[in-house]
């Protein structure tokens, strides 16, 4: 009886709020067409897909393409490069915005602080293409900044872009240069919520400014940091395609081929649709497993979690 009554109410609510559903329709349709339909298309990873036969007509081959990837000579190098660059990037770029926010919060000159913040956000708005272009022109041994600096000391500049060993560092540190200011915003916001009476109490107890930073400010940032860390871990294997693809060249390919660039080359450039989808699906599954593991660990240890 009660249930029927309830469903009658919600039906009435739906009827009365038809306008709200109308507002939702464009986004829902776009997501169905361009996100959910492709999810279904993942099935081609288990098929010998041919575009003329479509998803329904193509032959099923089970895990054949996954096996092909596991047995290919590209398997270990791409996995290794993906994980190495990703972990390097995480370890180097995760703490820097936190440190920056902590120090910035200690600056007493309001004006200096504001100017620094404005300047540090600036590189974030440079496009990936321009960023990589900048790396190439600045690091060019003959015509770039590095050439100028080395020639001041009468030395020959190294060709960093062509050096496979330098690839990961170039990628990570240029990323930090570009985004660390922007990434610190969220921590600066968290710090502005610190109760001022805590500082006053600490001053009375004779705490130095550095001690206040460690014992008052830092703990404020931990919940935010943990959530961001979990999210980063969950995308450890989906290292950004855009920048790495642009930074690749024939000389550094041994250290710069990662899963997403490999998927692009196999799939779009050589049209091996099923094989490429299989590699991508494998990647997604690893990501999901990582996300679940990290989230569970964090839930147990610190009570911070995504769900």
């Amino acid at each position: 009886m009660l249930k029927r009554h309830k469903s009658k109410i919600s039906f009435k609510m739906i009827q009365r709020n038809w306008g709200l559903y109308l507002l939702l329709i464009p986004a829902v349709i776009l997501l169905i067409c361009f996100t959910y339909i492709p999810m279904y298309g993942v099935l081609i990873a288990f098929q010998d897909f041919s575009p003329t036969k479509g998803v329904f007509g193509s032959e099923w081959v089970g895990f054949e393409y996954f096996k092909k990837f596991f047995n290919s000579y590209q398997f270990w190098p791409t996995i290794k490069n993906t994980l190495f660059i990703s972990l390097y990037s995480l370890v180097a770029s995760f703490p820097i915005p936190i440190i920056m926010a902590l120090f910035l919060n200690q600056l007493q000159g309001k004006k200096f602080r504001k100017i620094f913040q404005t300047v540090s956000y600036l590189p974030h708005f440079i496009s990936t293409v321009v960023m990589v272009g900048m790396l190439i022109v600045l690091l060019s041994p003959s015509t770039g900044l590095i050439g100028s600096i080395y020639s001041l000391f009468g030395l020959e500049a190294p060709n960093l872009m062509g050096n496979p060993g330098a690839f990961s560092s170039l990628y990570v540190w240029s990323d930090i240069w570009q985004h660390c200011g922007w990434d610190s915003i969220i921590y600066i916001a968290a710090l502005s919520a610190v109760d001022p009476s805590l500082y006053e109490a600490a001053t009375v107890d004779g705490a130095s400014r550095f001690q206040k930073l460690i014992y008052i400010d830092l703990p404020m940032l931990i919940p935010t940091a943990v959530i961001l860390l979990i999210m980063r871990m969950g995308s450890l294997m989906s290292l950004g395609f855009e920048k790495i693809y642009l930074m690749q060249n024939d000389l550094n390919l041994s250290h710069s081929e990662i899963i997403s660039t490999y998927v692009y080359k196999i799939g779009i450039l050589s049209s091996q649709y099923s094989y490429s989808s299989a590699i991508n699906l494998f990647n997604t599954v690893i990501n999901l497993i990582l996300l679940i593991i990290v989230n569970t660990v964090s839930k147990r240890v610190s009570e911070n979690s995504l769900w």
Binding site: I14, V42, I44, G234, S276, N280, L291
Partner: peptide
Amino acid sequence: LVGRKAFMTFFIITMFFNGGLIPTFLT
């Protein structure tokens, strides 16, 4: 909004999953 939670889930799922490059390309 009746079904708000269901709609939210429908949206949030797309933040974590997608079909990947090739299926999207074919679509």
